[in-house]
Amino acid sequence: MGQTAHVSAVVWIAAVSLVAWLWLLLGRGFFWRTDVGLPPRGEPDVWPSVCVIVPARDEAAVLPASLPSLLAQDYPGRAEVFLIDDGSSDGTGELARALARRHGGLPLTVDSPGCEPPAGWTGKLWAVRHGIGLARARGPEYLLLTDADIAHAPDSLRHLVASARTGGFDVVSQMARLRTRSPWERLVVPAFVYFFAQLYPFRRIGRRNARTAAAAGGCVLLRAEAAERARIPQAIRHAVIDDVALARAVKDGGGHIWLGLADRVDSVRPYPRLRDLWRMVSRSAYTQLRHNPLVLAGTVAGLALVYLVPPVAVAAGAVGGSAAAAVLGGLAWLVMAGTYLPMLRHYGQPPWLAPLLPFTASLYLLMTVDSAVRHHRGRGAAWKGRTYARPDAVPDEG
């Protein structure tokens, strides 16, 4: 009787997992599709001026592969680059000037906020604030916020501005193609983008009447007027996940935003080891859950139900002789793998990685739990020597 009840429970749980996957397949904005490229665009009659703002802290290792690509932008209008050296100790500012002298191209200004960020500001947003302040004197119509590890194809800025201008978008953001060279990068990175798209379906983001809002911080083209209206970056000064906070602030202010996958924008930052990727995810995972233990518990349960139950049900069904458990678990696993295949193709990875998604999801589950543990030990949301408090623990500027 006990074994029968156990098998029956497995069958029911596997059935719930399958239903969840059918809903994700059809009812979550087709998040798994990777054909969300830049919106259709035409050439604007007059190309608006753009200021590119690059916050950089100890980025000398990646700057030679990224900054020259910005300076080499083939843009018909007026554009210039502001690199804000956020207290680097590795010569980032000096290297940026040397690269500009060597490569030429767009005008480059290298400057620094001159002090550590005050309480309530993250370092990146304090640097962005300084960069926007410098750019404001030029009167640009658009600001391109891009990270120091992001390389742009020569026509990247042209296409971003054309899409924003002709499409009427206040934000056009692209999810940079992350590096997938090491075995761990191949296993973990496509899943990172897949999970992000599942959380923030790209198609919903572009709808004016949808609540979903997100951007990808590596590449955000922002209309200057929309930034002023949404009080960017002051309104989001404490945000560790600043790209999503920026998109939410602009959309709440009535702005029209767009996010999709990039084909001209690439991250050059390497994550060769599992611990490098682990640190990238765990530093902000608990922040995404609003530092709430109940939300953490629900997230862990949800990840287990959706990603871990299918292979467990297949194994339990095979061992316990329950064809129903094995079939239901196998179907859920099949749907899961099928939705992951487009992302693997986007990253040029082999399809045999798709059935391994439950293993990768288990790693993300552990990273999320580790993020919460680090937070409660006072080591959460740490980045390059700085640890940030939760938003409700910082003073309000009013």
Rank of each mutant, 00 (worst) to 15 (best):
R129N: 10
G133K: 08
A191E: 08
R177K: 12
G139C: 09
M175T: 03
Y194S: 11
G167V: 14
F169L: 03
D170W: 01
F196Q: 11
V189H: 10
D147G: 06
R177V: 02
T146R: 02
V172M: 00
F196P: 07
V161G: 03
A164S: 02
V189K: 08
V188E: 05
T166H: 01
L134N: 04
G168C: 07
L145V: 03
H130M: 09
R186F: 10
V189P: 08
F169C: 03
L199H: 15
V128Y: 05
V172W: 00
F192V: 14
R177S: 09
F196I: 11
A153K: 10
V193W: 05
E141D: 12
G168D: 01
F169P: 03
R165I: 12
I150P: 04
Q198T: 13
F192K: 13
A135F: 02
R158N: 10
A197K: 06
A191T: 11
E185V: 01
V188G: 05
L160Q: 03
Y142H: 13
T180N: 08
V172K: 00
D147R: 02
V128G: 07
R136G: 13
G168M: 05
T146A: 06
R129L: 14
V188C: 08
V128M: 11
A153R: 09
L134P: 09
A176V: 05
V161D: 02
E185F: 02
P154H: 06
W184K: 05
R181M: 13
M175V: 04
D147S: 08
L160E: 02
V171A: 00
V171T: 07
A148Y: 05
V193E: 08
R181G: 12
V161C: 06
L157E: 01
D155N: 13
P154N: 07
